[in-house]
Every structure is written in structure tokens, then in C-alpha cells.
Amino acid sequence: MNLLLEIGSGLCLLLGCFLCLSGGVGILRFPDFFTRMHAVGVTDTLGAGMILIGLMLQNPAGLVLLKLMMILLFTLFINPTASHALAKAALRNNLQPVLDESSNQGGDKPSKL
């Protein structure tokens, strides 16, 4: 049982690290601000979640588990709010996103704020 938990925790940590690294590569690789935001979204949701679940499996009893769950909950509540505020401020200050030409139908564009 103990070995099983250890293996599960290791797997979760490994997956979380891979997701975080992918997000880190994405933030350097993507062409503009709005696409970079999606890369950060990966590290913030599943990357952080997997690492915290991996830590939970290390010590599946007592107060530490509750605190880790609280950190996970706060991360999941806070990050969409922060990225929405960021995106809204960026669009409001006339930072135009780079769009794919084929999908650029004039009617769908948002009105100027």
C-alpha cells in the first residue's frame, strides 16, 4: 500500500513537472501576449494541480492534506480571475492580438472599448 502511494505520488509529480516545463517553453515560444496566456493557463491549472496532488499522496493524513487542498483551491480560484483581469486590461489599452488570417471575418471582431 505504501509502495503504491509512493509510485502514484512520483507519477503525479513527474506529470506535473512535464506540464510546468511545457508551459515554460510555451511562454517563450508563442508569438504574442494572448497566446502566451494560454501557456500560463496550462501550468496554472493542471501543472499546479498535479504537483499538489503528488504532494498530497506523500502524506495522505492529517492537517497537511487539508492545507494542500486549500492551496489547490485558492490556486484554482485566483488564477482565472487574474488572467481575466490581465487580458481585459491589455485589450482595453489597445494591445491588439495577432490573429489567424483565415479566421479574421470582420463581423466577429469586438467593438472598440
Binding site: 510546468c20 511562454i27 500560463v40 496554472d44 504537483i51 504532494l55 492551496i71 488564477n79 487574474a82 488572467s83
Partner: peptide, 15 residues
């Protein structure tokens, strides 16, 4: 954005 991501990663690092 990068600063926000840095902060999130710091939380994970501390844990």
C-alpha cells in the same frame, strides 16, 4: 503575466 506565473511557481516551490 510572467511575474504572475513566477509567483504561482514560487508557491509550488515552497510547498
Amino acid at each position: 503575466l510572467a511575474f504572475n506565473m513566477f509567483g504561482t511557481k514560487t508557491v509550488l516551490l515552497i510547498s
